[in-house]
Design a protein around this nucleic acid. Structure first.
Lengths: 170, 170
DNA sequence: GTAAATTAGTTGTTGATACAACTATACACC
DNA sequence: GGTGTATAGTTGTATCAACAACTAATTTAC
C-alpha cells in the first residue's frame, strides 16, 4: 500500500508520475460522475457544455472560433463539429464577423443561455454533493490555487481572454 | 480577469465549478503535452500506457481484466479492446485463470516490461521539466495530498488492489 | 497592384471509447 | 442436482475527437 493512503509521507513523495496520474484519475472519475447528468439535463455533450460555459462567461455571449477552441482545449476541427451540434440543437448560432470575413463567431442563443444557466446551478449542487464531503472549503481553495498554477503552466491560453482579438466585440 | 490570477482571494472562491473546471483543464492540457511523447516512444495509446503502468506495479505483472478496468477507469469493453492492441503489439498476453474459468488475466510480456520501464523514466523527466518550473516540491506534495482525497472520493476502486480477488495470484 | 505567405474555418478519414446485447462460467437455493 | 441469478469477458453499433488536407480571406513584400 503506497504512502498516499497512509497520509504520513507528504514530504518526500517526489514521484511526478503519481501527481500526473492523480490529476488524470481525478479528472476522469469526476467526468464519469458529473458529465452523464449534464448530458441528460442539457442534451449536449460534456465538451459542448464546456463550450456553452465559455460563451456564457464571455461578454455578449460570443467568441471567435479560434479563441473558443484555445480556451476549451478542443482542436479547431473538433470545435467546428461541436458547434454544428449546438447549432443543430438551437443553443448556439454562427455569426459572421465584420471586418474579417474569414472569421466566424460562435454565439449563444437565448435558449442556449437559459439552458446553460439552469444547468450550471444544478451542476454546482452536484459538485458540492460529491466533493463537499471529502474536502473542506479551505482545502478546496488551496486546491484551486495549486491547480491554477498547473493550468497556467500547461495551458496558458485558457486565460487569454483579455488578449483575444475580440476588442471589436459587439 | 478573475481572482485566480491575482492570487489574492484564496479564501472565498466557493465556486465548485472553478475547481472541477481546473481539474478538467489541467488534465486535458497535461494529456496533450505528455501523451504524444509517450505514444511516439511506446507505440501505444495513453490509455494503453496507463494499463501497462498498472500491470507493472502489480505483483507478477498480471491482473484480472475487471480489476484492471476498475483501476484504469476504462469500461470492461474498452479494456478488452485496449488489451487486444497490447497483445497485438506483443507487450501483453492473456492468461487464463485457474479456478475461475470465466476469468482472464492481462499479463505483461518481458518486452512489455522493458518498454514500460524505459518509458517511465523518460516520462518522469518530461513531467519534471513541464511542472518543475511552476510548482515547488512542497507544492507538488501538497497537491498530491489534496488530489488523493479527491480521487479516493470519486474513484475509490483505483486503490483497491489489496481487496482484489487476486489472492491466488501466481 | 499582384504574388507569396499566413490565418480562419471546414471537411474527409481514421481510431478509440462507451453502451448495450450476448455467451459462458460460477454460485445460491430449494 | 437442477434452476435462477450474478459475474467475467467479448462483440455489435454508434458517437466523438484528432490529424491532415482543403478552401477562402487577409496580410506582407516587392
Amino acid at each position: 500500500m503506497s504512502c498516499e493512503e497512509s497520509g504520513e509521507c507528504t514530504r518526500s513523495i517526489t514521484d511526478p508520475i503519481t501527481l500526473v496520474g492523480l490529476i488524470f484519475e481525478s479528472a476522469q472519475a469526476l467526468r464519469r460522475k458529473i458529465v452523464p447528468t449534464i448530458e441528460k439535463e442539457t442534451g449536449v455533450t460534456g465538451q459542448a457544455f464546456e463550450v456553452l460555459i465559455r460563451l456564457s462567461r464571455s461578454p455578449g455571449g460570443l467568441l471567435r472560433m479560434s479563441d473558443l477552441a484555445a480556451q476549451t482545449g478542443l482542436t479547431r476541427s473538433g470545435l467546428t463539429r461541436t458547434l454544428d451540434r449546438l447549432v443543430e440543437a438551437k443553443l448556439c448560432l454562427r455569426a459572421s464577423c465584420e471586418g474579417d470575413r474569414r472569421g466566424t463567431f460562435a454565439m449563444l442563443t437565448d435558449e442556449g443561455r437559459e439552458r446553460i444557466t439552469a444547468a450550471i446551478s444544478r451542476h454546482e449542487a452536484d459538485i458540492e454533493r460529491i466533493l463537499g464531503g471529502s474536502l473542506t472549503k479551505a482545502e478546496q481553495d488551496q486546491l484551486v490555487a495549486l491547480l491554477t498554477k498547473v493550468r497556467n503552466c500547461v495551458h496558458p491560453e485558457a486565460t487569454m481572454m483579455s488578449t483575444a482579438p475580440l476588442a471589436h466585440s459587439n
